[in-house]
Design a protein around this nucleic acid. Structure first.
Lengths: 237, 237
DNA sequence: TGTACATCAGTGAACGCGCGTTCACTGATGTAC
DNA sequence: TGTACATCAGTGAACGCGCGTTCACTGATGTAC
C-alpha cells in the first residue's frame, strides 16, 4: 500500500523528523535564538548544506518547531478534556495537562510562550495551532453552560465598551451562547494559568511557592470557583 | 565637594551609563541572547577590548541590565502605591504602573520576565531587585489587613499541606499578620497580572482581546474583588 | 524486464560575516612628597 | 607649586571560534517507455 510512497519519500519523511528532533534537543542547550543549522547537521553527521534539502532556511525550521510545540501542547490539552467528565474536573485536568507538558518540555514551552525570538516573526501558519489550548478551555465553559451548571456570576461586573465587543466577537467565533461574564472570566483564568506556569518555569517562584505543584493545584481550584464551575458531584445531564 | 571624585571617576561613571544605555538599545534589536559587546563598542566608537575596563565579561553586562530593569520596574511600582490612597486604588495603580513600564520597555521586560537567556544564569545579586514588585503587592494586602478592610474571604478554601507552610513562611518574611487565605490569593493575582502582561507583549492576545488595555483594567478590578479589597470610598482609618 | 533519462539527496569548498576575550602598548590623569 | 611615579583608559592586533547560505558536483533512486 502507501500508494506512490517511494523509499525516497519515506527516507525524506524520516530525516525531516530526525532533523526536528535534533533541533529540539539543541533548543534545550542553546535556546531558540542560538539554534544553529550547522550544529544540527553536525550532530546528524551531515554536511550543513544538506539541511537545505529539508528546510529552506533556519527560520523555516524554527517555524516547524513552533508549530509542532503548539500542536503537542494542544493535543495534550484536548486529550485531558473528556466528555464523560464534568466541566470542573475537566478544567483541572486540562490545567494539569498543560503544566505537565510544559514541565516536561520547558524549552519548547519557552519557544512558544517565552519572549519572542529576535529577528523572527511567526508566520500565519502558527496561528491555528497556537489557539488549540484556548479553544479547549473555552469549550469547557461552553460545555458547562450548555449543561446548565455554569454559575450566573451575579456579582461579577459585566464587561463594557470595547471589551464587551471583543468578548462578543470571541463568543461568536469560539463559544456561541456563553454569557459575557463567564467568557471574560475564562480569559482571566487563561492568563492566570499561563502566568503561573511561566513563573514556575522561568524561575520567578523560587524562594516563595517552590516546589509549586501544591500552589498550582490550589490556584486552579480557586480559578474553577472563580469561573463558576460547580464542584464535582453534579454530573452532566 | 564630591570628595575624592576625580575627573577620571566621573568619566568612568558616565561611560558606564552610556555602555548600559547602548546595550539596552541593542536589546531591542537583537534580543538578550544576541547582545554583543562588539556591537556595543562599535556604536560607542570604541574598540571592543575597551569595554573590559568597565565590565569583566558579557555576562556581567547582562547582569547589570537585568538588575537595572528590575529596579526600574520596582521603583515604578513603589511610586504607584501611595499611603494616602486606599488599598484597592493602590492595587489598580500598581498594576497599571507595572503594565505601563512593560509596554514602554518591552525588551527589558522580556529580559526579566521572558524565557531565561541560554547559557546565562542570574547571580544572587538579582534576587532582591527581582522581589520589589511582589513586595509592593504584598504590602498593599498588609495595608488593607491592618486597616481592617481586607475581606475575610470566608468562602475561599484555605491552603493546606505544603502550600500552607510556604504561605506561612511568606507571611513571616514579607507580610506579617496577613491571613493565609488573603496571601494565597495575592500570589494568584500576582501570577495573573504578569501572565496578562506577558501575553500582551509576547503576542498571545492578538486576535482576541486586542487592544488589551480594557481587558487589563477589567481584569485587575476583578482581581481586586478576588483579593477582598473593598471598593473605593472606604477611606483608611 | 530492461534501458535511458530525470529527479533528487548529500558533498565539499567557498563567501563574507560576526563573536568574546587576551595582551602588550601608549599616553593621559591622579597622587605623594 | 613642581616633580617623579603610579594608576588607569583606551588602542590595535591577534587567537580561535562559529554562523547562514550558495554553488557546482557526484552518485543513488525513481519513472516512462
Amino acid at each position: 500500500m502507501n500508494a506512490g510512497r517511494t523509499a525516497r519519500d519515506r527516507a525524506r519523511a524520516e530525516l525531516t523528523l530526525e532533523i526536528k528532533d535534533t533541533a529540539r534537543r539543541q533548543l534545550a542547550v542553546e535556546g531558540a535564538a542560538r539554534l544553529s543549522l550547522r550544529a544540527v547537521s553536525r550532530e546528524l553527521g551531515m554536511v550543513s548544506s544538506a539541511l537545505y534539502r529539508y528546510f529552506p532556511s533556519r527560520d523555516e525550521l524554527l517555524t516547524a518547531l513552533i508549530i509542532d510545540a503548539y500542536d503537542a501542547l494542544g493535543a495534550a490539552a484536548e486529550r485531558a478534556a473528556r466528555h464523560d467528565q464534568d466541566p470542573r474536573t475537566n478544567w483541572q485536568a486540562v490545567c494539569r495537562a498543560v503544566r505537565a507538558w510544559a514541565v516536561a518540555h520547558p524549552h519548547e514551552y519557552a519557544l512558544i510562550y517565552g519572549s519572542p525570538v529576535a529577528g523572527y516573526s511567526a508566520p500565519p501558519s502558527t496561528i491555528q495551532p497556537a489557539s488549540r489550548v484556548a479553544m479547549v478551555l473555552l469549550g469547557l465553559i461552553r460545555q458547562a453552560h450548555e449543561a446548565g451548571i455554569l454559575a450566573p456570576l451575579d456579582d461579577a461586573p459585566a464587561p463594557s465598551g470595547v471589551l464587551a465587543e471583543q468578548i462578543a466577537g470571541l463568543a461568536a467565533s469560539a463559544a456561541p451562547g456563553v454569557p459575557a461574564k463567564g467568557l471574560t472570566r475564562a480569559m482571566i483564568a487563561w492568563t492566570q494559568l499561563f502566568g503561573m506556569i511561566s513563573f514556575e518555569l522561568f524561575g520567578q517562584l523560587v524562594g516563595s511557592v517552590d516546589p509549586s505543584e501544591p500552589f498550582f493545584d490550589h490556584a486552579t481550584a480557586q480559578m474553577a470557583d472563580f469561573l463558576g464551575l460547580a464542584p464535582a458531584g453534579q454530573p452532566l445531564s
